[in-house]
Nucleic acid binder design. Structure first.
Length: 188
DNA sequence: TGCACGATGAAC
DNA sequence: TTCATCGTGCAC
C-alpha cells in the first residue's frame, strides 16, 4: 500500500477567517481512528457558516445547549443530528465566542471507508461519526485533519450553500466551496 | 409539556 | 416530489 506522508494541522490553522479555513480545508485529509480502525477521507467539498450574524448558521439563534460547541475554541468538532437520521460534522473556527464553523459536505474515500461519503450525512455514516464526537478536540489522536506533504493544485468553485433557502440574503452568499471537476462532490 | 421543523438521502 | 424520523428550541 502506498504511504502518504501527512502533517496534523495545528490549532492556529483553525483560528483564522472562516472562509479562508474553508477553502484551505479542500484537499486535506480527515482522519478518524475508530476503535482501532483508521478511516481516512480527502476533503473535496465544504461550506462556511459565519457566526451569529449568519442566519443560515445554527449559532444565529444565540448560545444554546446544542450550539455551545460552535461558541467554543477553534479546532473542535461540532456534530449534530439532522432530520432525526443523519449526523453532520463541522469544524469550529476563529476565536472562542465567534461561533463560526465549516461544514464538511463530501469526502473522497482514501482508507477504510465503507460506501460513499458524498453529502454531510454520508460522511458521518462512512466514517462512523456521531454525537459522541461532539466537542472533540481535532488535535487529539483519534480525530484530526492532516495535510499531505506535497501540495497539489486545483481550481476552487464557489456556489450558494445547500438547504438554507430560509436564510434570506444569507442563502445567496457564495459560501460553498469544492474542487473543480472532482468526481466525489455531493452536488455539481 | 407540547409541537413544528430542519446545514439530508433515497426512493418513486 | 415525497417520505422516513427525532432532537432542539420556543411557545404555552
Amino acid at each position: 500500500m502506498k504511504k502518504i506522508a501527512m502533517k496534523k494541522l495545528p490549532r492556529s490553522f483553525y483560528d483564522q477567517d472562516t472562509v479562508l479555513v474553508a477553502r484551505e480545508l479542500l484537499g486535506k485529509y480527515l482522519v478518524h481512528k475508530d476503535n482501532g480502525v483508521k478511516r481516512v477521507g480527502r476533503i473535496v467539498e465544504v461550506e462556511a457558516y459565519l457566526g451569529p450574524h449568519d442566519r443560515a448558521a445554527h449559532s444565529a439563534r444565540g448560545l444554546t445547549e446544542r450550539t455551545k460547541v460552535m461558541f467554543g475554541a477553534p479546532g473542535h468538532a461540532y456534530v449534530y443530528m439532522i432530520y432525526g437520521m443523519y449526523h453532520c460534522l463541522n469544524i469550529v473556527t476563529e476565536k472562542k465566542g465567534h461561533a463560526s464553523a465549516v461544514l464538511l459536505r463530501a469526502l473522497e474515500p482514501v482508507k477504510n471507508i465503507t460506501g460513499r461519503a458524498q453529502g454531510p450525512g454520508l460522511i458521518c455514516k462512512a466514517l462512523n461519526i456521531d454525537k459522541r464526537l461532539n466537542g472533540h478536540d481535532l488535535l487529539s489522536a483519534s480525530l484530526y485533519i492532516a495535510e499531505p506533504a506535497t501540495t497539489e493544485s486545483f481550481k476552487i468553485i464557489r456556489r450558494p450553500r445547500v438547504g438554507v433557502d430560509y436564510a434570506g440574503h444569507w442563502a445567496r452568499r457564495l459560501l460553498r466551496f469544492y474542487i473543480k471537476g472532482d468526481p466525489f462532490i455531493s452536488k455539481p
